[in-house]
Design a protein around this nucleic acid. Structure first.
Length: 257
DNA sequence: GTCGTGACGGTTGAA
DNA sequence: TTTTCAACCGTCACG
């Protein structure tokens, strides 16, 4: 894991395997596409594989976000304290109850929905590990809250996955639920990347990534009709805040520094 | 020549 | 502290 130099693709572009392209590049891809430039030309121009261009554009069309998905982590926990509590209750009421019956009951009682319903094996594990050796009082009883409270499990991934509409926090969102491309634009706002001082994997892109926002070759679109999502150019901060919340994903800052 | 897609090797972070 | 696992990434090759 020493991505200081990155790798060079067939087009001569530099990338870091396993890491997302910089936001500036991603943004540039979307911008060029909206200017009517074909993906194959974008691919050549930015030296990004056409598969990647295709993927980023597809994602943008689908989610309205140029940002990559959340890398790493685990699925949100479904065995919340509440769920465990209910399972324990079911078990106490009916010691012979099967895990699958508990599962059905959790669903029927509205404790869980189909999205956060624990698997039978999870329930079995709970019965074995948390309830089987539970004396009488619960470790989740408020009166027994000696350790730190369990992290609220109903939102564990939301903070990561919320950025398909990444600027929702700032309220810059189009009626269709998608942010505008232009909301990401405006040079000073796109500063998630420290300019590659020495050896950035992205120096292969016709200059630094900051060249995309400050260089003479790219004028930020001024809210013309090129955005299918209309033209809100009032959100330079939107991108900035988004970048801040996701700055950990930045290849340069995360890997090369 | 263009584009969509799946395999692949890689990174990441929660459990 | 280390390992495991499942998410994601971009590239490449194929059709």
């Amino acid at each position: 894991m020493e991505p200081a130099f990155g790798e060079v693709n067939q087009l001569g572009g530099v990338f870091v395997n396993g890491r997302p392209l910089p936001n500036a590049i991603r943004l540039r891809i979307v911008e060029l596409a909206q200017l009517g430039i074909r993906p194959c030309d974008i691919s050549r121009q930015l030296r990004v594989s056409h598969g990647c261009v295709s993927k980023i554009l597809a994602r943008y069309n689908e989610t309205g976000s140029i940002l990559p998905g959340a890398i790493g982590g685990s699925k949100p926990r479904v065995t919340t304290p509440t769920v465990v509590k209910h399972i324990r209750t079911y078990k106490q009421r009916d010691p012979g109850i099967f895990a699958w019956e508990i599962r059905d009951r959790l669903l029927a009682d509205g404790v869980c929905d189909k999205f956060n319903l624990p698997s039978v094996s999870s329930i079995s594990r709970i019965l074995r590990n948390k309830i089987g050796n539970l004396s009488q009082q619960s470790q989740y009883e408020p009166s027994k809250q000696t350790s730190h409270p369990q992290p609220q499990p109903t939102l564990p991934y939301n903070h990561l996955y919320s950025y398909p509409t990444p600027i929702g926090a700032t309220g810059t969102k189009m009626p269709n639920g998608l942010p505008t491309v232009n909301s990401y634009v405006t040079a000073p706002s796109i500063h998630p990347y420290h300019p590659p001082t020495q050896v950035s994997p992205y120096m292969g892109y016709s200059g630094t990534t900051s060249a995309f926002v400050t260089g003479p070759t790219w004028q930020p679109p001024s809210g013309s009709a090129l955005s299918p999502h209309s033209c809100d150019i009032t959100a330079p901060l939107a991108f900035k805040s988004m970048a801040v919340t996701r700055d950990s994903m930045h290849p340069v800052t995360a890997s090369a520094l």
